[in-house]
Design a binder for these strands. Structure first.
Length: 567
DNA sequence: AGCTCGCGTT
């Protein structure tokens, strides 16, 4: 059987290289017929032969379903959609169409080969949703992977019995789809039904806490993990380090790092990245040196972390040094390393040098690189290069328009800024609303800009108005040039005043006693105006305010921020 | 028999 499996993999692989390229998605309709049609001739009459299996190679009437399973496994390993479709028709022909596990694997292959429609169709063709346990688990994970959360949920809810893998697939799936709170809810439900969580469960839950930046949840989850005596492998170790870093507890992250086994590079990467988001570039560099001493080879992700750390602190020289040193570790710089360099140079104001890197890099720059460059053009008010960048971004998103408009505003090109706004209006693109959230008494409270949906909204706005008044008395003036709206200055100011992080902060102040630290998480970059405001508020209230934005931590204390206004 | 987990550039 092992021989057959290897042969199948070889076969499928050999065809994946030659045939998958000729595969056209518009044959989809034809393909789906296989599930109800016993004809397994070549589905694409235009292309030449083409069955991946010659009659002598593909076992016929004596083929058992286990063999088919191995063939499907090979198709999956080699991403060979063509061979999978062929095998699908064989499955029908041989009368195995009712074998759930085979169908479940087909669904999984279609989904992972970029044919979600086929996966859906096949799923709908199944008369009743009574998959066996393992097939159902596979289907849940498959649909979660392609973002079809509702289908995954439907399968989960229809299961007569569930095991820990079913729960893990749901929790992990929610985290993958950025539904962190839902993941935590499902975890709670799992516990209340006395299903024993395992290491897989905790890896996902920990990631959910990390992404939420939910300190209380994080600590509680870690405690439970210890109580359950879950062994910490390198995956859980790096997840824990990442969780504490992203929850603002870099000291706890370091503590975990010192107490666990450190023979895997990902544990080091997690800490280096953690130090990077805290703006502790020199510490990140120290960890890098230590890993070399301890004989752990850095990988491509290590360098992404080190370059990011340099970028956030403006360490241009060091960044160059580490980028150049990659060759010593036989690591070829990838797109993301060039991206990090463009970001590093761009932030530091070396726009021409950043542009040279883009022009000279051996691969095609992607949208991430152009966005980093565009963002640097905004920071350093260079509309000419900003226009170069914007032309390279094919499908402009809301944030790109905002950046471009801000660039024009910053160099007083009001007409151009207005043109951008008109284009946005014409294309129905709305300014993306920022979101911030704060954890209070174990619950997550989320705010959007100008949000009035919170139960305590009146008290929140009252606190906010009071803070705004006091900040102004301290000489704070709003950065109205940042607002993308053709309205009066007064209205612009209103807009800035109700940015989501300000609402979240007001709620934090409302619900905590004086002197307590307040931590807020935000989905976008924090704006210049909010950053300035947070500094002032930290001074007048004599409080530590921590804001985690999309890329890093800002710790405001006594009127200064740990980022040193460089971010 | 098969199914579930982490760290990365804007």
């Amino acid at each position: 059987m092992q021989m057959l499996r290897l042969a199948a993999i070889r076969l499928a692989s050999s065809f994946s290289s030659s045939l998958s390229l000729s595969w056209r998605p518009n044959r989809t309709a034809k393909l789906t017929m296989f599930s109800s049609d016993s004809n397994y001739d070549d589905p694409s009459p235009n292309s030449t032969p083409k069955s991946p299996f010659s009659p002598s190679e593909f076992p016929h009437s004596n083929t058992d379903h286990q063999t088919l399973f191995h063939v499907l496994e090979a198709c999956k390993l080699s991403s060979n959609l063509r061979a999978a479709a062929e095998t699908h028709s064989r499955i029908i022909k041989l009368g195995y169409g009712t074998y759930q596990s085979l169908i479940a694997h087909l669904i999984s292959i279609y989904a992972s080969c970029g044919c979600p429609n086929l996966a859906h169709k096949l799923c709908n063709e199944i008369p009743c949703w009574d998959f066996d346990l393992i097939s159902a688990n596979l289907i849940i994970a498959t649909f979660m992977k392609i973002g079809a959360i509702d289908i995954a949920k439907k399968v989960f809810h229809n299961m007569p019995t569930r095991d820990v893998v079913s729960w893990n697939s749901m929790i992990g799936g929610c985290v993958k789809n950025a539904r962190f709170e839902e993941a935590l809810r499902i975890f709670q439900e799992m516990l209340s039904l006395n299903v024993e969580p395992d290491g897989f469960t905790f890896a996902s839950v920990i990631t959910g806490c990390a992404r939420l930046g939910a300190r209380d949840h994080a600590k509680w989850t870690h405690g439970l993990m210890i109580e359950k005596k879950i062994a910490i492998n390198y995956i859980l170790g790096s997840a824990l380090i990442d969780m504490y870093s992203k929850c603002g507890k870099i000291e706890s992250a370091k503590e975990i790092f010192e107490t666990i086994q450190r023979d895997d590079v990902s544990v080091w990467n997690a800490l280096i990245n953690g130090l990077a988001v805290h703006g502790l570039a020199l510490d990140a560099i120290a960890i890098f040196s230590r890993m070399v001493v301890e004989n752990v080879s850095p990988d491509s992700i290590t360098f992404v972390g080190i370059l990011t750390a340099c970028s956030h602190c403006g360490l241009v020289e060091q960044g160059h040094k580490y980028f150049d040193s990659m060759a010593c570790y036989s690591i070829q710089p990838q797109l993301e390393h060039y991206g990090a360099m463009v970001d590093l140079l761009g932030r530091a104001g070396c726009l021409d040098e950043a542009y040279s890197i883009i022009k000279e890099m051996p691969m095609e720059p992607d949208i991430v690189i152009w966005r980093a460059f565009l963002s640097a053009c905004r920071t350093h008010r260079n509309s000419d290069l900003g226009e170069v960048a914007i032309k390279k971004i094919k499908h402009l998103a809301s944030g790109d328009y905002v950046l471009l408009s801000n660039i024009y505003c910053s160099v007083n090109r009001w007409d151009s800024a207005e043109r951008v706004r008109d284009t946005m209006k014409k294309n129905g693109i709305r300014k993306y609303r920022g979101k911030s959230w704060i954890e209070m008494a174990g619950a997550i409270h989320q705010f959007k800009a100008g949000d009035v949906s919170h139960l305590d909204r009146e008290a929140i706005y009252k606190v906010l108005e009071g803070l705004i008044r006091r900040a102004k008395m301290e000489g704070f003036s709003p950065a109205v040039e940042l607002v993308l709206m053709d309205v009066s200055d007064e209205e612009k100011e209103e807009n800035l005043n109700y940015h989501s992080e300000k609402l979240a902060l007001a709620y934090g102040i409302l619900k905590t006693s004086p002197g307590m630290e307040i931590q807020i998480t935000k989905n976008l970059r924090t704006c210049l105006d909010c950053h300035y405001w947070m500094k002032v508020v930290s001074r007048i209230l004599n409080r530590v305010i921590i804001v985690r934005d999309r890329i890093r931590f800002h710790r405001f204390d006594g009127g200064v921020c740990t980022c040193g206004d460089y971010w």
